[in-house]
């Protein structure tokens, strides 16, 4: 791939998804775009970029952007965040929202669905405490292809073994050939929508809890800051934000601070919260 082509595609990916791809990672372009080239009956990745540059085909651009996303995810990823959700976040919200009895949760880069389904299973396990409550889980991702997989809720034997306790597999999955499908009662707790984090989430409404995990790592500082600023605007003053294990708000956003003693969980700072109260 020549430098020109690399620059072109790097720029395109940055604009479309925020992904920052450096020269050292150029090999990733080759390996991930090869299947796209084949799908479009093109001989090579070079040919694919040629067509992209001349025809500016929207569907091809979407295919290229989606092919470059990293979709790795696990049920109960890192486990601790979900313990914190059950033991700290949920009890707080049950008390604070006791009058309205409504909680809205957003999985903001949900990939193949393990994160929202993990939350749904936790909530199902807590059903006794949640009787009469309206709990919504909205799960979004840039990639429509991965959202389709999430909606199907069909996982390989490997995928259901990393992080998912066997008792929950028994309760909430059924076997289909070599694969395992999430039960209807869990699937219907999650509503999936395509959404690009580079745009305003205002239309999705407000969320008491936001999981934005393992996606900021692909962005540069400026993009991270903008994404966090927009998330801050759709959270109530006492909302919670989750980031991935390798992500932080430090040096990126003044709107959030870590919840004392709870690594990985963030809340709005005084400034962030005041801003939201003003905005209503």
């Amino acid at each position: 791939m020549n430098v020109n082509d690399f620059e072109y595609i790097a720029q395109l990916l940055y604009q479309r998804s925020g992904l920052v791809i450096t020269q050292e990672k150029a090999y990733l372009l080759e390996s991930r775009l090869n299947p796209v080239a084949r799908k479009w009956d093109l001989d090579s990745v070079d040919a694919l970029i040629g067509v992209l540059r001349t025809k500016k085909d929207e569907q091809l651009t979407v295919d290229v952007t989606e092919a470059m996303t990293t979709n790795e995810s696990f049920f109960f990823r890192d486990s601790r965040p979900f313990d914190q959700f059950k033991d700290i976040v949920l009890p707080h919200l049950l008390e604070a929202r006791a009058a309205r009895k409504q909680i809205r949760i957003w999985s903001a880069a949900c990939s193949s669905g393990q994160e929202p389904y993990t939350l749904a299973m936790i909530l199902k396990e807590e059903a006794a405490r949640l009787a009469g409550w309206r709990i919504e889980i909205v799960a979004t991702d840039l990639s429509k292809e991965i959202l389709d997989k999430a909606k199907q809720g069909l996982y390989s034997q490997f995928e259901v073994q990393r992080g998912l306790p066997i008792t929950l597999l028994m309760k909430y999955f059924s076997q289909e050939g070599e694969k395992w499908r999430v039960s209807e009662e869990i699937r219907q707790m999650v509503s999936y929508k395509p959404f690009n984090l580079l745009t305003s989430p205002a239309a999705l409404g407000h969320f008491d809890v936001v999981f934005c995990r393992n996606v900021l790592i692909y962005f540069d500082q400026a993009t991270k800051g903008q994404v966090l600023a927009r998330i801050a605007q759709i959270m109530p003053a006492d909302g919670f934000l989750y980031l991935g294990g390798a992500e932080t708000v430090l040096g990126v956003s003044d709107s959030f601070e870590v919840v004392p003693g709870q690594r990985g969980v963030y809340r709005l700072t005084g400034d962030g919260a005041a801003m939201n109260r003003k905005a209503g």
């Binding site: 034997q157 073994q161 990393r162």
Partner: peptide, 16 residues
């Protein structure tokens, strides 16, 4: 654990 397994699966199950 359903075979085949790898080190990640063993580790995550033992953690659980």
């Amino acid at each position: 654990i359903m075979k085949p397994f790898d080190s990640d699966i063993i580790e995550s199950k033992f953690v659980q």
